[in-house]
Design a binder for these strands. Sequence first.
DNA 1: ACATGTGAACTGCTTCACAGCG
DNA 2: CGCTGTGAAGCAGTTCACATGT
Lengths: 216, 216
Amino acid sequence: MNSQACSAVKRIADSTVRRLSVYLRFLEGSTSRGQSTISSEELAKHGGTTSAQVRKDLSFFGSFGKRGLGYAVPELTESLREILGLQRQWNVVIVGAGKIGTALAQYHGFKSRGFNVVAVYDTDARKIGSKWEGHVVRDVASITSDLGERPAEIAVLAVPADVAQAAVDRLVSAGIRAILNFAPVQLQVPGDVALRSVNMAMELESLSFELTNRDR
Amino acid sequence: MNSQACSAVKRIADSTVRRLSVYLRFLEGSTSRGQSTISSEELAKHGGTTSAQVRKDLSFFGSFGKRGLGYAVPELTESLREILGLQRQWNVVIVGAGKIGTALAQYHGFKSRGFNVVAVYDTDARKIGSKWEGHVVRDVASITSDLGERPAEIAVLAVPADVAQAAVDRLVSAGIRAILNFAPVQLQVPGDVALRSVNMAMELESLSFELTNRDR
DNA sequence: ACATGTGAACTGCTTCACAGCG
DNA sequence: CGCTGTGAAGCAGTTCACATGT
């Protein structure tokens, strides 16, 4: 009916949101390839799902397509950006200036997608003060006062597993609202803080399981 | 009934396998803390799930607990290792010697968990031949012959999105059976190749969505 | 008495199938 | 006629509740 992204009336499944992100990624490529219209079938093929799933996912937020035609690429791209909250900038702090933390700090996908890395933190006195990729590494102890001056919504956690929960507690009390965790531990956060975890060990072990049990 | 990990009779959900991995991680900590027995309730609390879920997850593979007592930590740890296929070594190649690839190559969790990094590859002539963390960076063009001499089961893909599918095709024809993908694209693999993807952009966008739509 | 193991109920995501509309 | 949008059906994963065994 409308072609505006309307606010969700019922709870949206996490799997739906992740697929929207995949659709958006492919649409951005379609734009640069000069494609002006796209069908749910095509989106599905490149998103690893089905056309019905694509239509259902989009239908939670409005009617974006034209029957008999498909979806207009620029309009759908814009709508997905709006739905995912990507029309604003998000401030991000990276906690942990080890190998993973510094790799992430340099990840180009942050800046290009509106995620603005405002600071990198560590506890190692030898790292504090050194400059990495345009960011001076700061002392974790100053997180609270720093965030008071320059708030950030999202923290990327790349510290050793045994200090991850302590870091989370500090971040939460400093007002961080979302955490992307790379430490291989299950973290406890208050209900109003969003948490996603990327667990390398878990992914590898899941592959190991699949390889081991492929013989049905 | 038995306390042996029996081979799966029905399809095991991916979510179950990922939880087993989380349980295993916590059990390893319990061992080092000297705890000899553990209840499903305790495992659940630290695994971010419920006691019923823990018992159901384990029940797919056998009966590992003692009624009225709980689970013996060393025995359950061993059983989970067996179920997940972690009692053998897996050979891993890392493709892409950029920031993420090199960070991963140094990731201690690989070696300590039986994932043996046997080679690092790149296409950049300036990187090929240089030594990083004990691994000489080799030319991607030699993957096929290298794997012929020294097979590897798992590939970790850390290359730019636009060359990821080409790298996958090469790896698959070279006999790789599982891929852990860090490139932000949806990859196509044959049905007999296991694929997991870690997509930073997707995780960030999912956090952005949650922050944006927290007001119900 | 206590905690596991499990069939049954439940919840919610996915797939189907077709009405609706360009 | 083609492709979207969607209620209804199907299915898979989770939760419940209790019988079972120590």
